[in-house]
């Protein structure tokens, strides 16, 4: 029961946050909306007894990533006037149409009786242990290979950052010299 109440409260908050990200005119408000969504998700993790994941969610996403977002927004400048009109004609009506289609299909599946959430886990399932110790155990035994494979992502990140940032912007130099 507690779980259901919490789900409705924080589910609604997560949706509000998500809508704010899209609808807000001020990018800082968008970032705040995203933070609300991320916090609401952290509450879901706590309800599911995944304490470590919840802590990581708050520290990494709501903390570090959001700081980075705000930093970039501040660097670019908040009060710069943005042109928010769509360049593709009929985009907004089409988006509404596609969104409604997804909702209708979802309702159809749910009402049509082809719908049951958890079919795989019979009964209560094993006790969830969301401590850092339990996750560490799993991470370095069962999930060892995917965990190690993330190191390839780190190599890509460093090599990619170098490849994309380590070049001389010739165009700007040309402009400074007055060349066309």
């Amino acid at each position: 029961m507690t779980e259901l109440v919490l789900f409705f409260i924080f589910g609604a908050l997560a949706l509000v946050g998500g809508l704010t990200v899209v609808a807000a005119r001020n990018p800082v408000h968008s970032a705040m909306g995203l933070m609300l969504t991320l916090f609401s998700l952290a509450v879901f993790y706590v309800v599911q007894a995944a304490h470590f994941v919840a802590a990581v969610q708050v520290i990494v996403y709501a903390g570090a990533v959001m700081t980075l977002f705000l930093f970039v927004i501040m660097l670019i400048g908040v009060d710069k006037a943005e042109n928010l009109s769509e360049t593709i004609r009929l985009q907004r009506p089409l988006v509404v149409l596609v969104g409604l289609t997804v909702v209708v299909v979802g309702v159809f599946v749910a009402v049509g009786g082809r719908f049951a959430w958890i079919t795989g886990v019979v009964g209560a399932g094993p006790e969830v242990n969301g401590t850092a110790e339990a996750i560490g155990d799993d991470l370095f035994t069962t999930w060892l290979l995917p965990f190690e494979a993330t190191s390839l992502l780190l190599i890509i990140a460093s090599a990619g950052a170098l490849a994309l940032a380590f070049f001389r912007p010739r165009r700007r130099e040309g402009k400074e010299e007055g060349a066309p």
């Binding site: 999930w143 290979l145 995917p146 494979a149 993330t150 390839l152 992502l153 890509i156 990140a157 090599a159 990619g160 490849a163 994309l164």
Partner: peptide, 16 residues
């Protein structure tokens, strides 16, 4: 999950 890791490793390299 492993397949998703492979997908991401390959895709992000190709984006760059």
């Amino acid at each position: 999950v492993m397949m998703f890791m492979g997908l991401e490793i390959a895709s992000i390299s190709l984006y760059v």
